[in-house]
């Protein structure tokens, strides 16, 4: 059911064209942050307005859309964004990673490997990987232009000197095709290896007015040192519902006495495994039956 008062997927065609041009430029220069005239959306800045604009510019009426937040299809903001496109675009939606042609995500890459033809759209809060080292946009743009990334390496080195390890657990910086240092959005560093993907990956930052992109099979290297190699760690557990030993886990507090369980953050991945008969340590009786 489409809201007839608005254009397909809310944005007018001129605006979509402007965004598509930014996306194409981003794909042509992987990892480079393309400024774009971000519009004011009917949801707050910081809640996915960049991702929503990129998704709106990519969607066609034949697309099947999946929206996740923290890996889950049913977190409130994912529900809200999915409903927005159902209402303004009338597009088909799914929770199945394999069935989706466009996936908008916040903070996760789906566990199921993406394939050619799929588009993964990230919501990005702070697109500038150097922002917390240098607050000025005028300076950071210069640093990117000159490939001046010494400051970032010094920061990682200082981490090791102070803490014995690189103390960045999410939004872990990467280098794209040996050129631009890029913020992969606040995904856990566990997800970083999957930034090398067969799908098109688009990053939208609405408030900061930036779009950047990774074309399929782009080389993406997480920054590290030879003697301190990158470590995509996760909780040392299996999923208590589906038993997966390789997926990223959320920790759920069960009671006020330290009881906890670990479950897949990717709800579709977990549900699919359970449907196939996989069981975890705390699966309920009905599940096992």
């Amino acid at each position: 059911m489409t809201d007839a008062a608005y254009n397909f997927a809310y944005l007018d065609e001129q605006t979509k064209r402007m965004i598509r041009r930014a996306i194409l430029k981003g794909l042509a220069v992987p990892g480079y942050q393309v400024p774009f005239a971000s519009r004011e959306m009917p949801m707050p800045y910081g809640w996915g307005t960049g991702g929503v604009q990129v998704t709106a510019a990519c969607l066609t009426p034949d697309d099947v859309l999946k929206v996740i937040d923290q890996g889950a299809d049913d977190t409130t903001n994912a529900v809200s964004i999915r409903r927005f496109f159902e209402r303004t675009g009338g597009v088909a939606v799914t929770t199945r990673t394999e069935e989706a042609s466009v996936i908008q995500t916040r903070h996760r890459i789906p566990e199921t490997p993406l394939t050619e033809g799929q588009i993964l759209v990230y919501q990005v809060p702070i697109p500038e990987p150097l922002r917390f080292l240098e607050p000025r946009e005028t300076e950071t743009r210069k640093m990117h232009a000159l490939e001046e990334y010494g400051l970032m390496h010094v920061k990682l080195y200082e981490d090791i000197a102070h803490n014995g390890a690189i103390s960045t657990a999410y939004a872990y910086p990467v280098k794209v095709e040996g050129r631009y240092v890029m913020d992969p959005s606040p995904i856990p560093k566990f997800d970083n290896p999957r930034l090398e993907s067969a799908a098109i990956q688009l990053f939208g930052a609405g408030r900061e007015q930036r779009i950047y992109a990774l074309p399929p099979h782009t080389k993406v290297v997480s920054l590290d040192f030879e003697d301190h190699p990158f470590d995509p760690s996760k909780a040392d557990h299996d999923c208590d519902l589906c038993g997966s030993g390789s997926s990223y886990l959320d920790e759920v507090i069960m009671d006020d006495e330290g009881g906890r369980m670990f479950v897949c953050s990717d709800t579709d991945y977990c549900a699919t495994r359970r449907a196939r008969g996989f069981r975890g340590a705390l699966s309920s009786e009905e599940d096992a039956a």
Binding site: Y45, G46, Q70, T76, H107, P125, Y170, P188, A235
Partner: peptide
């Protein structure tokens, strides 16, 4: 918007 977005779930980053 950016201030209030910290109300959104951050389980994954926090984990």
């Amino acid at each position: 918007g950016f201030l209030e977005h910290i109300k959104l779930p951050h389980y994954v980053d926090f984990q």
